[in-house]
Simulated scan of single mutants.
Amino acid sequence: MSGSGGVWPPEGAVGVAVEGLYESFAAAGYVYGPVFQGLRSVWRRGEEVFAEVELPVEAGGFAVHPALLDAALQARLAVLVEEGGERVMPFSFSGARIHATGARSVRVRVSPAGPDAISVRLTDLAGLEVLTIDALVSRPLAGTALTAAAVEASDSLFEVNWVGAPAPAGESGPGLEEIPVFVDVASVVAAVGEGVGVPRVVAVFCPGGPVAEARQVLGSVLGWVREWLECPELEGSRLVVVTRGGAAVGPGAGVDVVQAAVRGLMRSACSEYPDRFAQVDVDHDPEAAPVPVLEPVLAGVVESGELEVVVRGGVVSVPRLGRITGDALTVPEGGGGVWIWTRRGRWRV
């Protein structure tokens, strides 16, 4: 591997410029993140390509880190880009063997291995083999395939949108009976034990508190869930946990971290027991959503089967999963992949 006479780089090998190489890759449609930018030096001798590759992260957890192997294959890509050749992508390989594990720096030799195939050999700095591939076959890639594939892939990206909830039943409907509000589930159980009629829907406001008390608040709400499920008299009733400011609704909206954590807990409870639980998030200001406003909202939850709603300024919304639209896609000038813009930032694909 070390080349003729143990010299590295091998005698007769000519250096390939690597300065600005990843910018050239991006312009050609190959966009590599920081972990995959491990190619340090490249040389060529006829149809052979030699390279030095260094993994910018720890190699733990992998026999051979995927980014290390990818960077090794970039050596041939560097020559193709320099020559302005056609773009290719790996298609199949055979005869792959791992000889050593945990390498972070390797030397690479890429040689012809038949029509459209190359052999790949990775060694450590002492010349000991790390990984060998007898034959790796690549296939040409159409000029617009990378960008087109990225745009098409965006059709599989989704986000949660808050949309207007269906109007609740009319005031004469059976769903708008008075909704009792309790301080906790123990109060509900005690009231039922004293002979109070079993309510069909019960609302309990989640306690607030600083982030330091999040564990305590979550413990209290988890206790409510357990008590509710363990009380046989409440089997036909639904518990609605009301949080304040726990959902981010609209661009730039903030959340109460503790209340958001409760919402996560209740989302799990709702998914496991959809007939027993629901949750409503109201404005952070206690005066913004008094109980009279909540009564039709809670009734609407029960009648519509919604498990989660939010109330902002008296407007009721429900979560719906929707595709990120094509309007959110932009192709940067000069190529370099596709940015997908969302309300939370941007993603590169």
Rank of each mutant, 00 (worst) to 15 (best):
L68I: 06
M89I: 00
L69R: 01
R97F: 00
A78S: 06
A26D: 15
F50Y: 15
F62P: 04
S94W: 14
G95C: 13
S92E: 15
G38L: 06
S92K: 15
V88C: 11
T101N: 11
P34S: 02
E54A: 15
G33N: 09
A100M: 02
F91V: 05
S24A: 11
L68K: 00
V31W: 12
R44D: 01
D70F: 04
A96F: 02
A72G: 10
G33R: 07
A78D: 02
P66K: 08
H65M: 02
G61S: 10
S41H: 06
G29P: 13
A59K: 04
S94R: 15
G60M: 03
E58D: 15
A100R: 12
F25C: 13
F25V: 00
A28S: 13
R45M: 13
L68Y: 04
F25Q: 01
E83H: 11
L68P: 07
L73S: 13
V53S: 12
A96Q: 15
V42F: 13
G84K: 02
L68E: 06
L39V: 05
A59P: 06
E47K: 04
Y22S: 05
E58S: 10
W43E: 03
G33H: 07
W43H: 07
V57F: 08
Y30L: 12
H65Q: 04
L68W: 05
A59S: 15
R76I: 00
E86M: 03
R45L: 09
L55E: 01
A78N: 05
G38S: 13
E86P: 12
F50N: 03
L39T: 05
R87A: 14
S92L: 08
A67N: 01
V42L: 07
I98T: 09
R97C: 06
V42N: 13
A28D: 11
R45Y: 01
E54P: 05
A100D: 12
A63K: 10
F91M: 03
E48L: 04
A26W: 05
P34V: 06
P66F: 09
G20P: 00
H99N: 02
L55N: 03
S92F: 10
A28F: 09
E52W: 10
A67P: 01
G84S: 02
Q74S: 04
R40V: 13
P66I: 05
R97E: 12
F36C: 07
E82C: 01
L80C: 07
A67G: 10
S41K: 14
Q37N: 08
G95Q: 08
S24V: 01
Q74F: 03
G29M: 09
A67F: 00
A71N: 05
P66W: 04
A51V: 08
A26H: 07
A63V: 00
Y22K: 02
L77T: 12
A75C: 14
